[in-house]
């Protein structure tokens, strides 16, 4: 039986995409606008992509092309997650071992199928949203409105950079949706994009653009300034874990897209002959 992918799950799955960009995006004065703009463009493109999905899926060639295309965001995601862990906590571990363990986790999650990944995305998206908001609230008193920047000439370039990372994954997913979920895709990307922009704003107002430019992961470092009394000072990891889970969800969903031509089922990935029955 083909199971239904509910709009709310679909929206959560798409919300993971902008959220998983947060850790790696620099915080210049333009990032707030660029994040919002890129997410909005993505939402529009994906809404269109989701409408095209049924037609797209009728062609085996296009499906294969999409599967190959999804390789790119998967590989970049795994690589940047591995690098992030290597640069922040596990500097003594070989990079390949970190990427390997991330790949294993991704595949384990992907075997559940696209529907279950989307179902799983719902609590993860809520968790990430809650952590982002809590982190923001805890640092409000330290923010300096003077660090605010108006949109400038660097905005198109930054928007393009974010789009380059966000759009391939979003497009691959929207074209693989089992049902017409264009509204859900747009809602998810918009909600995720709003949180993305908010956190970029927090980093800019907190650290300032110059300090942020010094840091390899400014949004991550800024989260370290959120503390509850003497507890969780330097607590970036509490911020990073849900965001990495978002990225894991994104990789798992894209892996489902990658394996879609083999699986014949949106529900649970089955490579055996049983799936064709």
């Amino acid at each position: 039986m083909r199971e239904r992918l509910f709009p709310r799950w679909g929206a959560a799955l798409f919300a993971l995409l902008p959220l998983s960009e947060i850790l790696y995006t620099p915080a210049t004065g333009q990032t707030v606008y660029a994040a919002a703009l890129a997410s909005l463009i993505c939402a529009l493109v994906c809404a269109g992509g989701a409408r095209l999905a049924p037609a797209w899926q009728r062609s085996h060639v296009l499906q294969w092309l999409l599967a190959l295309f999804s390789l790119w965001p998967i590989v970049t995601s795994l690589a940047r997650m591995g690098l992030f862990l290597h640069n922040t906590v596990f500097s003594t571990r070989p990079l390949w071992s970190l990427i390997l363990i991330l790949t294993v986790c991704t595949l384990l999650a992907a075997t559940a199928g696209l529907n279950r990944c989307a179902m799983w995305a719902l609590p993860i998206a809520w968790l990430a949203g809650a952590v982002i908001l809590l982190s923001g609230v805890l640092t409000v008193s330290q923010m300096q409105p003077a660090h605010w920047h108006m949109p400038g000439s660097a905005l198109p370039r930054e928007t393009g950079q974010i789009l380059l990372r966000l759009l391939p994954a979003a497009l691959a997913l929207s074209l693989s949706l089992p049902e017409r979920l264009s509204g859900a895709a747009a809602r998810g990307l918009s909600a995720g994009g709003a949180l993305f922009a908010l956190i970029a704003l927090r980093t800019t107002l907190l650290l300032g653009t110059h300090t942020a430019a010094l840091l390899p992961y400014p949004n991550f470092s800024a989260a370290g300034l959120a503390a509850i009394g003497d507890f969780a000072r330097h607590g970036e990891v509490f911020f990073a874990v849900p965001l990495l889970l978002c990225e894991l969800g994104r990789c798992a969903a894209l892996s489902c897209v990658l394996l879609l031509p083999f699986s014949h089922s949106y529900g649970v990935l089955r490579l055996s002959r049983r799936a064709k029955q």
Partner: peptide
């Protein structure tokens, strides 16, 4: 520290 760095850079 983060504020010191910011204002000195500015």
């Amino acid at each position: 520290l983060y504020r010191v760095s910011e204002v000195l850079h500015a």
